[in-house]
Amino acid sequence: MPDEVAAGGSDDGRPGLLARWGTARRRERSARQAEFTAFVEDAAPRLRRTAYLMCRDWHLAQDFTQITLAKLYARWDRVRHAGNLDAYSRRVLMNAVFDHRKRAAAGELVLAEPPEPAYRRVEDGVELHVALLGALATLPVRDQAIVVLRHWEDQSVEAVAGILDVSVSVVKTRNARALGRLREVLGEDFVRT
């Protein structure tokens, strides 16, 4: 009889221990779901934009965003109270991009000479956008990540170092080299209007 009382309820109509526990678990799960949904609504556009800057393909950027959100959801109980959830989500996103690049590198076509860059002085905003994304694509993937996080996402050097798990001096050095490379690719007469 005590098992029936614990599971089903008592004689006076109150729910039993098991029923109260199940209700509490459903409420807790619902609260976690709501918390994750709020995070996704806030972070997904930013993550997708960052992913786009890394791959220049909106569909692939959406895939990277979904991979990132799926990994965060799987670890949500552990990471939801992290000190900086935005930085953690950016790190997961960058790892997804890096992993994809490693797999894609095996299928790349190697040319004897690189094609001539078609970047000249541009007047139109769309042409500027295309020229900048094309120039960004000439950088190694880690340098792309540093430039995107540092200059597009406006993250501090320390934040970028934390996201990419490198030292501050590595971020500074690679950022300077990457910006120099972008200047070479875009040419001296390239002026942002």
Rank of each mutant, 00 (worst) to 15 (best):
H59L: 12
R56M: 07
D42S: 15
C55W: 02
F64V: 05
A24R: 15
F39E: 02
W58D: 07
A31L: 13
G8W: 12
R25Q: 14
W76H: 07
G13M: 08
D86P: 04
V5E: 08
T65P: 04
D63I: 00
L18R: 01
A43P: 09
M54R: 03
D12E: 09
D57T: 05
R46I: 12
R75Q: 11
L60R: 13
W21G: 14
R25S: 09
L85I: 04
L60G: 06
L72W: 00
E28P: 05
R25E: 14
L18I: 15
L60Y: 05
R78T: 06
R32Q: 15
L69I: 00
D11W: 11
A24W: 13
Y73D: 09
V92R: 00
E28K: 14
T65R: 01
L47M: 01
W58N: 07
L93V: 00
D57M: 06
P45G: 10
G9H: 01
A24Q: 12
R46F: 11
E28G: 11
W21E: 15
R91V: 05
R46M: 11
G9L: 07
R29L: 15
R14P: 06
H81M: 13
H59G: 13
G8P: 08
T23P: 06
D77W: 07
G9F: 05
I67R: 09
G13T: 01
C55V: 13
A6D: 08
R32Y: 08
Y52C: 05
F36R: 10
V92Y: 00
V79I: 08
D42M: 14
I67D: 11
R48T: 01
R56S: 10
K71D: 06
F64S: 00
A6Q: 12
A70L: 09
R91K: 10
Q62F: 06
L17M: 11
Y73H: 11
R32F: 03
A61K: 01
F64N: 00
L72F: 01
R27W: 14
G9R: 05
D63C: 02
D11C: 06
E4W: 10
C55H: 04
Y52E: 01
G9D: 02
R48M: 05
L60A: 11
F64M: 06
A82T: 07
G8L: 13
D3L: 11
A24I: 15
L53S: 01
T65E: 07
N84A: 04
M54K: 03
G8H: 11
L69S: 02
R27S: 13
W76Q: 05
R49T: 08
V92C: 04
A87N: 14
L18Q: 02
G8Y: 10
G16L: 03
M54G: 04
Q62M: 11
Q66G: 12
A43G: 06
D3K: 08
K71L: 05
A43D: 01
A87Y: 06
D11L: 12
K71H: 09
D86R: 11
L85V: 05
Y73M: 10
Q66K: 00
R27I: 13
F39S: 05
A51H: 03
G22Y: 08
R78H: 09
A7M: 10
T37S: 15
G9I: 04
G8K: 12
G83Q: 07
V5P: 02
L93E: 02
